[in-house]
Design a protein around this nucleic acid. Structure first.
Lengths: 206, 206
DNA sequence: CGCGACGTTGATTTGCCTCAACGATTGTGG
DNA sequence: CCACAATCGTTGAGGCAAATCAACGTCGCG
């Protein structure tokens, strides 16, 4: 298990449907460009709790979730987990700083469910930028959107109470709220599981 | 004052030296591409406290600071200011969501000092992407870096006390710490000015 | 000069954490 | 299939970080 499976053209394409649709949202590829893109991809399967990346390793791939759910988190000095991001189907993830600089990662990425991902190696991503410059555009738009989403989150953290952040999370990601264990949501919101429980208790009554 | 000054080639180029160096850090332009880029720029001067953008307006420009200092902030329901970003010389800023979607901005941008900026209109930025695709790469790298910087900030906010955040800010932006009034730094760190004052008092003694 | 912007300090309150104990559920090996 | 251990969520008592409110000193500047 956890083998890297290198794909070439004889592999059935449908595996990548979700990814190709994701890309098609922002750029249009010629058939040969699509083939080239697919030739750079690898599929990896993770069982629940398996690590895709551990702090200290160098992050080698940009990753797209085909099925399942990942989380990026960080351990502080007290060994408490702080969650940066959940990534379900149709989301991208990596430790971007580690990927770009090829230095040891500070983040962990692990699977909250059995998960299937498509990955592209750093060097292949650079090749992709050179040979299909449209991907510069694609990732420019991706990072723009990610930047905007993170700005919102910073505002939430700076300006709101735990209760307000929980309500906003619920509003924005109703599916995630049902799918994830409560203490994971707490680690994302930056509060303790106990406190989240109390918030929920209060909301249920009030 | 606050006039938009449209520049053409007869303008002296040195005004844009800082901006051209900023661009040259990531991409290399041909002379005619540089000329085209410059032809799309406008210079604007702001006196201290002048607004570059107010919430409710549509953000029309991506902005590069040539001299001075801007801040992006947001007003919460209690009309408290929360600062998203300071932008001194050599930094880019805008309300990106408003710029991209052409919807009313939620952020304010104003000048903390007399400030000179170079701006590029949204439509001209799109033209630039089409005619000089290298700029897709440039802004892809820009937003990547901005994304990474913001991730760090989220971790800081979620996992650290006010004192730790202040010390980290001091470490990371020693020049800003001397340049900005204390209550602006407090609004950036997400604490009250009073509390920052107490932190500093304690640090001075301890 | 006098006013507004800025910073300091103290008293009190509140949001959230820590620690601890306790059900409920899940899952796993024997 | 049961037994036992994890895992997960709840609840309560006490404590600390940071907000709030208020008063006061100091500038710089119109």
């Amino acid at each position: 298990m956890l083998n890297d499976i290198f794909l070439s053209k004889q592999n059935p394409v449908p595996v990548f449907d979700l990814l190709l649709k994701n890309v098609a949202r922002h750029i249009h590829l010629q058939p040969d460009e699509t083939d080239f893109f697919i030739s750079l991809l690898q599929v990896r399967r993770l069982v629940k709790k398996a690590f895709l990346l551990q702090a200290g390793e160098v992050c080698r791939y940009e990753t797209f979730v085909l099925e399942g759910c990942l989380r990026n988190y960080y351990l502080d000095d007290n060994a408490d987990e702080h969650i940066l991001q959940f990534s379900v189907e149709d989301w991208w993830t990596s430790d971007l700083y580690s990927l770009l600089t090829q230095t040891p990662a500070s983040q962990f990425i692990d699977a909250l469910e059995d998960t299937t991902v498509a990955q592209i190696e750093r060097d292949n991503l650079e090749r992709l930028y050179l040979e299909v410059p449209q991907f510069e555009r694609f990732f420019r738009i991706m990072f723009q959107n990610a930047f905007i989403a993170q700005q919102r989150r910073i505002l939430q953290n700076i300006g709101s109470t735990g209760e307000e952040r929980y309500l906003a999370f619920r509003e924005k990601y109703p599916a995630l709220e049902r799918r994830l264990p409560q203490h994971q949501i707490a680690a994302y919101l930056g509060i303790t599981p106990e406190f989240l429980s109390k918030i929920r208790g209060k909301l249920a009554k009030g």
